[in-house]
Design a protein around this nucleic acid. Sequence first.
DNA 1: AATCATGGCAACCGCACCACG
DNA 2: TCGTGGTGCGGTTGCCATGAT
Length: 241
Amino acid sequence: MVRSPYIDKKGLKKGAWSEDEDNKLRAYVLRYGHWNWRQLPKFAGLSRCGKSCRLRWMNYLRPGLKRGNYTVEEEDLIIKLHEQLGNRWSAIAGKLPGRSDNEVKNFWHTRLRKRINQDPRSTKIIKQTSDQKTGHMHDANQIKLSAGISDSDSNEKREMEPNIAAAAPVADTKMSSLICDSSLSDSNSSVEYSFAESFESFWTQPFILDASHNSNVLALPPMEEEFTFLSPPMFIYDGMD
DNA sequence: AATCATGGCAACCGCACCACG
DNA sequence: TCGTGGTGCGGTTGCCATGAT
């Protein structure tokens, strides 16, 4: 179902991820955070480009990701959000706890579009989608306006991701990545709040997966699993003695 | 049983944005 | 102000699974 693994001309591995690679990446990020995606694969002992690592982490390995079946509520929410936001999958995914933008996007293309096509009441949505395809897409700012999203939202999102190179503690790094993932969240969203809340203690406590409420949540490998990592470079403030 | 068509999804690619020097 | 590097996003592709013929 996935691309066959191969080595590109730069010697970087591409295509499907092996279980071993997954474990290495997962273990490294959980231990050190993603302080720099570009450098990370080197330190984690992976022959992958940083982008590939990031994608794998965000879409597959990230803790709390749900896999598989969408509830009717989720489907309806995606349709509603797509009507408001257009193809801004990351924003839509941000409102769906445990879903990645890629997954939502795929789900839309494979299932919901069909469902909407069969539902004549949804012509408005179809029109908007096709307009975007044919270049009649709203200006990004227009979309933001119609969806009640201000530029400050996206700025705010960027600011949520602190500059890790500035010697931020690893725990903060990890937290920031999670917070950032629920981007464009609106403070009134109880769903969003509960998601953030449920992970608040995640980085401050040993990772114990509570999948009792959701069997779709990915299980993590045992923490005792050992990999040989290079520690991330230490960022020592040398401006003063 | 074999072949073909379609669905589904992981992963890649290119672009845009932002921070920083 | 400009160039560069890092990151995130959306569109697209590749390939396996499954169903239809």
